[in-house]
Amino acid sequence: MSVSITIEHAHKQFSTYPALRDVSLRVKQQELVALLGPSGSGKTTLLRAIAGLEELDQGRVFFDTTDMRSLSLRDRRIGFVFQSYALFKHMTVFENIAFGLRARPRHDRPGSAEIRKRVGDLLDLVQLAGLEKRFPTQLSGGQRQRVALARALAIEPSVLLLDEPFGALDAKVRKDLRGWLRELHERTGQTTVFVTHDQEEALELADKVAILNQGVIEQIGSPDAVYDMPENAFVCEFLGEANKLPVHVAGGQAFFDDAPIFGGIGLNRSGPASLYVRPQHIKLADNGPLSLPGIVERIRRNGAVRRLEVAVRGYAKRVELDLASSVAPAIGERVSMKFTSAHIF
């Protein structure tokens, strides 16, 4: 049982600054959506507003077609995983997970055998069987995270909301949990929204990524769409790396220092603009039309590729590009760069 979430014109003002400015968002049934943005972008406020933990100044939140405010907190069936996990420290793992079941009104509270079975199933699901008698302080960060998740799942939520679910974990555990969460979502199928500031996490996990900035959704789309086709400069700069070159656009071409460096731009654009090009979209080529000459200043290892820093006349920063081939130019060598793909804003 999962529901769709619709947020209409959400507006939230904190004492000095607006946290959300006219945000509308639709999350389909069973979809896994990431809210991605820098800190202070309003992503957590939006998540809390969906949960009803934050009262909106304007706008409404619907679960399917029901206005969330007409439902009691219990009937909303929201599974929420807090960034700090918010586990009950004086309760064992078992009691933590069973809390939501035991808190039900008497007539629809499961019997103790049923509760034991349900908690046991959840412990298996989050791979913590055998730890039910431990207290939260006796668990590792990753284990606590999974207890928090199991506790949220115990109430059979129709919506699962996660606030920076992997924020406090180290890199290795994050990666493991990420894959595991993806699998879990495929199995349980709850409509899921999670907040993160880690773009890799958002792009890898989510069906859809909503990029927030200063209380506004800058772009929403599939990971491929937002990464390959950023709609504005913020998204382009925020996702991945990009060199930013000041250019002049005329006749479908971008000119840097009066030389054309990139073509194929829509003819309706002209005038000064910024050209964004990702390091992996620059190739070294022979001198020719639409290329940018420069001198190699540094070469670094960057994971699987080599990162070249190229000094270009008339440009204060250095153009960075990734070189996958094993043949690399020497430092100080003159090279010519061709852009296979770029964005103009």
């Binding site: 933990l53 807090f82 918010a86 809390f99 939501g100 808190a103």
Partner: peptide, 17 residues
């Protein structure tokens, strides 16, 4: 933490509980 109380409320616990 405030979130402890919020967690309890979202899990369906009454204020008294």
């Amino acid at each position: 933490e405030r979130s402890i109380e919020e967690a309890a409320a979202l899990l369906g616990a009454s204020r008294l509980r």
